[in-house]
Nucleic acid binder design. Structure first.
Lengths: 189, 189
DNA sequence: AAATCAAACTAACAAACGTTAGTTTTGTAT
DNA sequence: ATACAAAACTAACGTTTGTTAGTTTGATTT
């Protein structure tokens, strides 16, 4: 019984390389060498380079979308939903830090159709996040700052978490969540 | 009297393309076409593709470094230094949003020597920032959170500001500074 | 033993890449 | 008009790119 298909192995290895150098700078021969095989052999498992990227990005985007959907269904107050969203990002980052690099930096190199789908998903995600923030403000639970500034302050931090989570001594996840929630929500003063 | 050299024009145009697709995905023919000339003509002005990238990134890195140096010389309290740093990032972003993309995403494609210099500058910058934060905590001006979490929450937001500053209706710079200072320092609750 | 099948291989292609060499054009100063 | 320098051009180069075609290997099933 195989636990991981060869295709999944290729995608996993490719995502590591994409994280290091970016999609465009990684060649099929790079990926093959990292797998210990020849470039042509990759095509027994995948359709092409672009397919690797699309699977990587769209699967991850769906994870964010379904996470958001679950949170929207909750009966919690806006601030508690934001806390859940922060935890969602941290959980995904800890388990998928490689794919996050591609999602952040290389989505524009997917096929046109996949780019359209991805951008739609991302805009829907951001719009849901924005709505929660606006509710928080109108209910007096959040400070009356420009919602866009709040949205992107939080999102920027969460989206680039993958860049420094690793090296910083593998902070305990629960400790990380506690401090990030504190900093992002209550500030630093 | 020419106000901008042809070389500077090429670098400026290239940085726009780098921001859209990343350094590796932009070809010399792309840059030439955007300039309305042929690819070979570029070499009358620049040494090669990598030189464009290095000038772009290292010039910007020096701007951050000298900005940091000026702030370190001030006699202000840590919190006020952090406010100055946030304003520094916002000012640079407003004037150099294209080059910031390359600095964030494509620094690893410079020559080995330039990468070493760049990473050294970045680490020095972060170390200075970290020291200010630690002073703020030990003086009781900042909450006693993990300094690394504070550092990267602020830096992540500032570093990706270039991605959304433009489209969001060209927020007035002073308004942006006010709201970002509030969100990053005093939080959202 | 024969057949099957996944997964590797070798060899090669056409296109695109960064770059070089040598030449022509263009504007400015003599 | 002539000379000069800046900046464009055409043509081509050697590599590298993603990908295809056809073949071989090795394990499992019949």
């Amino acid at each position: 019984m195989q636990t991981t298909s060869r295709k999944a192995e290729i995608i996993a290895k490719a995502s590591q390389l994409f994280k290091e150098k970016g999609y465009s700078a990684v060649t099929m021969r790079d990926i093959a060498q990292a797998m210990g095989i020849k470039a042509a052999s990759l095509y027994n498992h995948i359709e092409g380079k672009q397919e690797i990227l699309s699977i990587l990005i769209l699967d991850l985007a769906k994870e964010f979308t379904s996470g958001m959907d679950a949170i929207l269904k909750m009966k919690n107050a806006p601030l508690q939903k934001i806390e859940k969203l922060i935890e969602l990002h941290i959980d995904i980052t800890v388990n998928q830090s490689e794919a996050l690099a591609a999602l952040n930096n290389d989505w524009m190199h997917m096929s046109e159709k996949d780019v359209v789908d991805f951008v739609a998903m991302r805009e829907a995600y951001e719009e849901n996040f924005r709505t929660i923030i606006k509710e928080g403000i109108s209910q007096g639970q959040l400070q009356p700052r420009h919602p866009e500034v709040i949205l992107f302050s939080i999102l920027s931090t969460l989206r680039t978490l993958y860049l420094w989570y690793q090296k910083r001594g593998k902070l305990d996840v629960n400790l990380l969540k506690r401090d990030m929630l504190a900093v992002l929500i209550r500030g630093i003063v």
